[in-house]
Design a binder for these strands. Sequence first.
DNA 1: AATGAATGAGACTTCATTCAT
DNA 2: GATGAATGAAGTCTCATTCAT
Lengths: 206, 206, 206, 206
Amino acid sequence: MPTKKKPQVTAAPARRRELLDTAAEVFAEQGYNATTVRKIADHAGMLAGSLYYHFDSKESMLEEILRTFLDELWAGYDTVLAAESGPRETLEALVTESFREIDRHRAAVAIYQKESKQLVAQERFGFLVESQRRFEKAWLSTLERGVAAQVFRADLDMRLTYRFVRDTVWVAASWYRPGGQHSPEEIARQYLSMVLDGIAVREQPQ
Amino acid sequence: MPTKKKPQVTAAPARRRELLDTAAEVFAEQGYNATTVRKIADHAGMLAGSLYYHFDSKESMLEEILRTFLDELWAGYDTVLAAESGPRETLEALVTESFREIDRHRAAVAIYQKESKQLVAQERFGFLVESQRRFEKAWLSTLERGVAAQVFRADLDMRLTYRFVRDTVWVAASWYRPGGQHSPEEIARQYLSMVLDGIAVREQPQ
Amino acid sequence: MPTKKKPQVTAAPARRRELLDTAAEVFAEQGYNATTVRKIADHAGMLAGSLYYHFDSKESMLEEILRTFLDELWAGYDTVLAAESGPRETLEALVTESFREIDRHRAAVAIYQKESKQLVAQERFGFLVESQRRFEKAWLSTLERGVAAQVFRADLDMRLTYRFVRDTVWVAASWYRPGGQHSPEEIARQYLSMVLDGIAVREQPQ
Amino acid sequence: MPTKKKPQVTAAPARRRELLDTAAEVFAEQGYNATTVRKIADHAGMLAGSLYYHFDSKESMLEEILRTFLDELWAGYDTVLAAESGPRETLEALVTESFREIDRHRAAVAIYQKESKQLVAQERFGFLVESQRRFEKAWLSTLERGVAAQVFRADLDMRLTYRFVRDTVWVAASWYRPGGQHSPEEIARQYLSMVLDGIAVREQPQ
DNA sequence: AATGAATGAGACTTCATTCAT
DNA sequence: GATGAATGAAGTCTCATTCAT
């Protein structure tokens, strides 16, 4: 007598994942609001109503997409932070990890970038606020450690620098295409080179 | 002769401007799709239908907001480019001008950032494509002149650098609040310092 | 020979009965329209689609519930009427029998009360009209016999009296709970006492 | 700058009332759940979406119908109760007032009868519970006063009597048609005669 | 210039029902 | 006997837009 009401959480994770990937792609391409469930269903080869066998609502699809992404992101970040390397190495590892996540979850990252500002107002998406707090703390403390250790410049406004680095990395999701000519690691290397050393030619010592 | 059906272009340009500013604010805050004409009207203290005395459609409001912004942006950029300064000075002037535009047209910039990707597909917004092309040319050629003149590093992927600089600047519109503690010029100076020289401490030559 | 497509009528009548009882309970509680087959299936510990192995449709469940109830009701009424007792005894027997049916088929009675007005318009539920006709005839003729025999008052509008008695009895299904403190027979006795003698105290003849 | 958002409460009460009357008629005839907003709109000669200019939702229409009815009902009952007549006169006045309300708000009463059991579970319809409590108190205390004053029989279960009287009166809304051959007052008189004195012929004193 | 009322298209969602397994 | 997945019709509601006043 297993009065199961919602197959949403337990059953057939494979189909769910497929559908969520499809939905994420469409959300990223057209924007969440402009995406109709009919479009998602079309891409999945089914009728709009059929999606509701798998999900409670359009919004719950969005939520699951973002949660899944953030869970993976934090698994990666936590590994980096647990290593307790020096500030420069930590920064490099965070940037590299970020580009890897963009590579793996491009759609989710793009959605996050575009929609999170609106979503945080809703209780259901409170987990975004939580994540943002942890995110800021991880980056800001790394930068601060770097200033203290005299590997990062002390003459810059720390919050400005934080936003600079943060945006620089994540905005890449808007143009990045997986399978392009640069691997995530390669892009990370170039970004780091710019962020750390600047784009101006250094006056040669001597 | 003056019996026009559509007073949209002629009558009371001051009121139009007010309404467009209101609309831009709401578009920026809530997203174009999520903004109903009712919300705009609420903010303007009138009923939704009344807006149609002033504008043809919600879309035409969006178009006018973006056109006005781009017109001003290009007036500024063209002045900078016409000066034909050296590449580093040009870069600095472009960045500074950009932050000034963000200061003056924060809402329009935010809308542009968020919506342009979708809009360019529509013929009506073809002017965005045109602007993007000019934009890319202005920045890329400045960077290339800098590499040729050996003031910018030659070991970086030029397109990656372009995107880096472009995003670095414009993404600021998402968090910038006019009247904050930093003036646009001050923000520009710090950004330029990071972009040009990096955030890492330079090893002192001997 | 026994290769039937629709086992609906033959197979496992016990299970059918169980499921119909479950369905009747839910229909009575939530209303026919507001009851989804999913809810019925939940209560029965199965999935919605599985019900269609046992029944053709939600409507056919409703039909069978009502038919079963009316069949039993008429078996009881016919026994009473066949006894050809005096009008007062017949009235008492009909009321008592009615409360017994409410006791046994509370859910079906509640459904009947609430939905029959809508259902009679459908051909499939024509049997309800037929039953109502017989019902009215049985009660009305008993009342008329009582008036003729001078055991019921002659100064009342007969149809009004009919509705009064009818409603008085059947509306009880909306609040009656089997297993309560009063047996059906006890409730019948009190109702009859009120209906026959009124609730006012009689002035004692001298 | 009156940023009015909901014309629902203030403007044009006449049209609202018309539409609510139409809706009540359809709800009463077909049941709330089975009534589509399209049907209401059809009856009102407009499109389904247009109803939403006047009302927030189908449910809010139902709420307003029931509230309006109960407000009027209580205005009448309160007048009766304030008179502080003897129990028999009070009972007669309550019954008469009830039939007058049925005459004036037939549709609302029918809706109330059919739907209230489901509705009370929703917070929005909490006022129904409140009304039921007052209702029961008014009737029950009248009956109890009557028993104490020896004008009503003492040998009956008081709650059973309450339900009997209550249902007897209100169920009439299911068959009552205004403009029929009996006025509300005439129906009340006959009902009272049955309820108070019963339908059986009294044995003549002497 | 603005209001009040309505239109009509389209959105999200529900649900009875089907059917291969 | 039952499940899991899907269909397709219909329902409630939203919203840009129109227009007489």
